[in-house]
Design a protein around this nucleic acid. Structure first.
Lengths: 247, 247
DNA sequence: CCTATTGTAAAAGTCATACTTTTCTGCCAG
DNA sequence: CTGGCAGAAAAGTATGACTTTTACAATAGG
């Protein structure tokens, strides 16, 4: 689809800072740049507008809004950021999001999951143990099982806000972790324990225990990512945004 | 803007279940229904598509996707849901989201907030105490200060995913709570204490304490909302979605 | 010289129409 | 009964004309 192409390219350009905030674009200009018709440009721009990345103003054009106003939870924006220069920063934000959401999701899942989901979680935890003990901690299968474990908890929480696109994004984070070679081939024993503890707690409908175990998992992941310097604590090239007075 | 009108009306119709999942619409049909041109319809539909509420298929039309696939974190969808028949369910989901996010945001804010933000938080907590003691717990000002306190914590976390539109939505939840008359005119003493404790912890850069205090606040809010029956635990009229095998 | 008013044009917004591409459906032949 | 082929339906794309808003400048008045 032409429309998707323009949306993606333009969105990326903005997300990556190639087109900076306060820049003014025009429909006509974009028509030329992408050599497509107004219909296509307008539809792409509408979506960008709905993500609060640009604001149209008559007689002026499309103004690129400041980053702080963008819809940071939009999956497309997250994807663009993960593939761009702010990748590390984005990974850090997502890690923090995991720390916030997964433990609470686990607590909810303890009372809300159905029997099938509980069983599958237990099976997944066991499989992780097997693979981990066999030194396959960075194998594709370990990764796949790990992702399924975590997304299943989110889905079992019964809260659509946790289940939805967030699951996909968290899968992306885990995958990125492996891709960067941050996962040890012999996973930390503690992590394997915690997965089993969490699964057990969910079987027992023990929300508090499930929450604690999952919090242990995500905190450990966050810590080790920080230790590896994968999240980049350095401020943005264009200077720290938050501190300097707000709009 | 015409476009906004169509988007809003159509989105609401779908969110409220007036147009049910699996229903097939056509651009032409919508042109007639709203008496607007194709451009307008197409742009509105594109946004709905970007929210994963409809999926266009050539030679078929626009299929309304199942609720479980919608982008539950989209602010517009949240707004529509809050104004519709699933209001209680949505409030419950948002409460759970608060429980997940605000404590973690508070912990981050402890290390990340600047001096100005810390001072303002302390001032807001103090003001809440004043108003609460004066029996103004359901006054507009108490509400406004409460909202500002919580959104400021989110913003001070330094994580754009917490700060962004989520803040507005959480404000909406707090406002809804007051509007429903759930807020006692004399706020629970515990809540006032916790706000002050949280503010103090943020001044001291004590992340753990800030997290715990804020968790206390949101858990108490969640509990009391549940007790009041404001969140409605009953399953949806059209039957529980999650349990019955997935796509 | 400064201010207010008015006029102009630029750009988004809307409408209508024509054409392209994809793909479902149903018919017809084997 | 099966497979392929043709037609039609609906989305996708392109284009031109017109409307509305509004920034900006020129001009008139104080």
């Amino acid at each position: 689809m032409l429309h998707t192409g323009v949306l993606d390219d333009l969105g990326r350009s903005i997300a990556w800072g190639e087109i900076r905030p306060a820049t003014v674009l025009t429909i006509a200009g974009l028509e030329e740049r992408y050599e497509v018709s107004r219909s296509v440009v307008r539809e792409a721009v509408r979506v960008l507008e709905s993500m609060r990345m640009v604001a149209p103003r008559r007689r002026v054009g499309l103004t690129v809004r400041p980053r702080s106003e963008w819809n940071a939870l939009d999956v497309r924006l997250i994807t663009w950021n993960l593939a761009g220069p702010a990748r590390q920063r984005e990974l850090g934000a997502l890690m923090e999001l995991r720390v916030a959401i997964e433990p609470v999701a686990a607590r909810l899942a303890a009372t809300h999951a159905d029997d099938d989901e509980r069983d599958r979680l237990a099976a997944l935890a066991a499989r992780l143990r097997e693979l981990g003990s066999a030194g396959l901690g960075e194998s594709p299968e370990y990764l796949a099982v790990d992702i399924e474990f975590h997304t299943l908890i989110l889905r079992s929480s019964g809260n659509e806000m946790f289940a939805g696109t967030l699951g996909d994004v968290i899968g992306e984070v885990l995958a990125g972790r492996t891709r960067l070679g941050l996962s040890p081939s012999e996973p930390v024993a503690e992590a394997l324990d915690l997965h089993e503890i969490a699964a057990g707690a969910l079987l027992d409908r023990d929300g508090a225990a499930a929450e604690e175990a999952v919090r242990g998992i995500v905190l450990e992941a966050h810590r080790s990512a920080l230790a590896e310097g994968a999240l980049g604590d350095v401020p943005e090239p264009d200077g720290p945004v938050r501190k300097t007075g707000r709009a």
